[in-house]
Every structure is written in C-alpha cells, then in structure tokens.
Design a protein around this nucleic acid. Sequence first.
DNA 1: CGAGCGATTGAAAAGACTCAACCACCGTGG
DNA 2: CCACGGTGGTTGAGTCTTTTCAATCGCTCG
Lengths: 229, 229
Amino acid sequence: MPNQSYRNVNCEHCLVRKDSLFKDFCKHDVDDLDGHKSCSFYKKNQSVFLEEGTPRGVFCLNAGKIKVFARGEEGKEQIIHVAKEGEIVGFRAMFSGEPYRVSATTLEDCNICFISKADFLDMVDTNSSLRNGILKELSTELADRATFITNMAQKSVRERLAFSLVFLDDIYQGEMINFSREDLANFVGTATETLIRLLKEFKEDELIKTHSRKIELINISGLLKISGS
Amino acid sequence: MPNQSYRNVNCEHCLVRKDSLFKDFCKHDVDDLDGHKSCSFYKKNQSVFLEEGTPRGVFCLNAGKIKVFARGEEGKEQIIHVAKEGEIVGFRAMFSGEPYRVSATTLEDCNICFISKADFLDMVDTNSSLRNGILKELSTELADRATFITNMAQKSVRERLAFSLVFLDDIYQGEMINFSREDLANFVGTATETLIRLLKEFKEDELIKTHSRKIELINISGLLKISGS
DNA sequence: CGAGCGATTGAAAAGACTCAACCACCGTGG
DNA sequence: CCACGGTGGTTGAGTCTTTTCAATCGCTCG
C-alpha cells in the first residue's frame, strides 16, 4: 500500500522494473532513465490522463493499479484495461500523434513516475531492445483486444463475469479483487444490477466469497468452466 | 475486379502503394521491396492465414478485400477488421513472437503480395520512416479497438448495425457493400436472423436499399443518428 | 447525527436469440 | 432444357437474458 513517503524511487532499485518494458536496460540506460523521470503520489480515484487531452509523456506505474477506460455515448465508462505495478501506461499515444482516446484513473493510491514524450521517444529511437519490447507489447495487446471484442460479442454476461473474475484475480496476485461494483460492471460490460445478481448466484454456488466490496475466488476452475475458456 | 492477369505487380507502379505503409519509400527502397516480394492471386473465400498457424511474413493487399476474424467458443466467427486495397495484413504477428491469434480470408478475388518475415523485419530495422509508420498504425488500431469494445459493450444491435453499415460503406468507397448476411452478422456481433430483421426495418425506413446481397446506403446521416455517433 | 453514495432487491418490459420452416437463386447433371 | 440439390436469405413464434426503473438498505464521512 503506497503512501506519501514512497514518492521518490530510484530506477536502479525499483522493485517492479523487472516487470516493465525497461527490464533489459543496462546500468547506463537506467541512470539515464532515472535522470529523466519524476515521481508523484496519486490518491485513489485520481485522474492520470483524460480522453481528448494532449499526451505529454508516459506514466510508469511504480505502485498501485490504474483503470484505462473509454466513454460511450451516454458517458458510461467501459474499462478497457487494468494496469498493475510495473506497467507503463499511455505509451500508445506517444506514437499516434493524436489526443488521448481513452482516460486513465487510479483504482487505489498509486506511486507513478513520469517520463516526457521527447525523452521517451529518444529512448525508443536509440534503444532497439526497448523498441522491440514496445512493438511486441503493442502487437500482443492488439491480439488481446481481438479476443476481448469476441468475448463481448459472443459470450453472455454470466460467462464474461466468470472470465473477468479470473482475469482480475490474476492481476491482483494474491490480494482480493478490490473493485467497486460499478467498475466491475463497466469492465464486464453490463448494468450494475445485473452484475450484483450474478455475483449473488456465484456466491450461492460457492464459486466466490465477498468481503464487503472485496471478492475472493474459491473455485477458479469452476469459474473457468462457466466462462467457457 | 482482379483477375489472373493481375498476378504480377511492380511495386514502383503499384497504384495502391500510396495508401500503404510503404508510401514514403524512396526509389531504392521500392526496388528493394520489389525484389523481395512475390505476388499471388487468391480466389474469393480463400484463406490467407489461419489462427494457430506460424507467421512467415506479411501480406500486402494489391487488389480486393480481406476479413480478419477470431473464433469464439462454438467456432462462430467474429470479424475484427476488414482490410482493403493497399493495406498490409498480418504484420502484427511479425512482432509478437507467437502463432497467429486471428485468421484472414478473402472477401472477393484478391491479388496479394507476400514479403517474408526476415525481409520485412530487416526493412523495419533499417527504415525509420517505415518503423514510425508501423508504430503509429499499431497505436491507432489499438485505440480503434478500444472504441470497438465500447460499442460492443454499450450499444444495441440496432445501433451497431447502423454504425457498421456506415463504416463498411466507407471501406467500399463508392461500390456497394458486398457482404454475406452471415459475415455482416459476424461483424456486427449478432445472429444472422436478427441482422436480417433489422435490415428490413432500415429498408422500410428508407435508410438503405438492397440489391440482392449488396447494400446501398441512401440516408447516411439517418444511419449515423441511429448509431449514436 | 444526517447526508449521500454504493450496494442490493424486486418487478416489469424490452431486446435478442433459438429453433424450425420456407423461399429463392444458382450451378450441375441428366 | 429442366429437374435436383444445396446454399444463403427470410420469416414466424416462443423463450430467455438482460435492462430499466423504483425503492430500500447500510455504511462512511463530515
């Protein structure tokens, strides 16, 4: 659980760098990175960037989780992605030359390092391993989203919820899923009421337990079976 | 309408190169490209590549259209993308290091040039303008898919159909949309019967006309209004 | 302690799907 | 030239899922 004292992190000793696009950096590159980044503390539910805004750099998530979402016609959020510690958020917009087309908001208290667009693009230009990492990441996410689209189009809400719970459980690695019901509904792509009813069924079937808003999975294989995966 | 005689194309004179990722190539690069590509004719409904298969290169679409799709649990297709003349198909898989996660099939007779993975990656490594074009393309498509997901999750089938018709009309530039009802349903994400019923309503409301399987839009702004865009 | 938001429940309505049957067109082979 | 078979398109009826709207509950924060 990050707090204000986390604020300054040294890239060389950053515990989550091993999970990031910067994992293969040599000492020199890490020092360079460290000299160009600035760290900030973000409270829960704080905006990181907003749709339509101008991208000015990337956000390296040192601690905490972030939701990335689009808004539909009536302003309803659709959560596209949940980023966890070590992920770099917002780098797609560095290459598109367009304003942000999604927004990002913290799901809990976060510690986030910022690297300016110019510095980041410089690194991409000069560091082929970073570049290849980014190409791979973009390609993989593109395929992930194809699967996401297919699930949305073909699976029932019940199936999608089962799938989403297992998916999120993995992201929360050991901790319990800590999403508001509304966020969860906006991830699954359903109404909050429907989501709650289905959670209740899953509880009755002893697939999950709830601890107020937190959700504990107690039968993952059962959930996977329901999800049809 | 391509035919067998189209088979061999010279990149330098290729009419659709201006719409492709190779548009900024200098004479030297074009000659290089030309030396490394091989052209083939594909009949309608012919497979270009298959999910799970090993990617061996990219496909540059000289004439015709291609659908890119994933398959859901019960084997139902979900069309993720429709590629038209000038597009390069399958380049995402060059970077992911994984088997294909989607399939591609021609929607009509096509003429397609093939460039091997090694040659393509060579070009990407040495040609920074191509590289930037690819980064931009990947980023833009990622954002497009976020919108796609949001539409799937939040819009009704009726809204999605209206949106899809306008979208496809743009791809077919002047020609009429020429999709089987099943393909159209698999793009919109619905059952074929539902799709047909909605098309009928759109006809009654004089938004579209059908000419056997082909669809002509006669009130685009009306469709856009329905789509909620 | 009260306000307000998030969570929950109920009831009714709407949207979409499934299943089954039928039609229309097209190319083949007799 | 025409009957045949097959595929793709169309229609109808009934069912189920999911949404919507309304109301209630419960907890946290000031």
